[in-house]
């Protein structure tokens, strides 16, 4: 196949499918509830027993407590990703807090916090 045609097909295909998915509402972030956060953590870490869940007000991030320690669960598109809160840094961010993991496959997440919850989450992260 001529290279020009291949490039047009690949570029047009990716662009068209992206537009179609976005316009049909497939870009929405997962919203968690305390119950779904527990079950999602259990999916990622089946050996753990969740003892407490703290959700952000927007429902996109949850701080998870287990007997083994503290972890973070966050919406990743329509799905979730979980990491224990070990070997990480956190920084203030205009919209809340930025967590940076030292993990090339999960570099970090911005936790969006409103004014009411910002102080509480800072405390949670300082003690994690």
């Amino acid at each position: 196949m001529p290279l020009e045609i291949l490039l047009v097909l690949v570029g047009g295909g990716i662009g068209g499918i992206t537009l179609l998915l976005h316009l049909t509402g497939k870009s929405r972030q997962r919203v968690l509830t305390p119950g779904s956060a527990r079950s999602e953590w259990a999916r990622h870490a089946p050996d753990d027993t969740v003892t407490d869940v703290t959700l952000t007000h927007d429902g996109h991030v949850a701080l998870i407590r287990t007997p083994a320690g503290v972890g973070l669960l966050w919406a990743f598109g329509a799905d979730t990703v979980a990491r224990p809160l070990q070997d990480f840094d956190w920084l203030d961010h205009p919209r809340g807090v930025r967590i940076q993991f030292h993990d090339f496959g999960a570099p970090g997440v911005v936790i969006r916090l409103d004014d009411l919850e910002r102080k509480h989450w800072r405390h949670l992260l300082e003690t994690a």
């Binding site: 690949v10 990716i14 992206t18 998915l21 497939k26």
Partner: peptide, 19 residues
Amino acid sequence: GRYETRDAVTSLIMGAGNI
């Protein structure tokens, strides 16, 4: 099945990169 925009776009870019 399910589709999600960024997941699908990432997959398609990986396919283009493979070629």
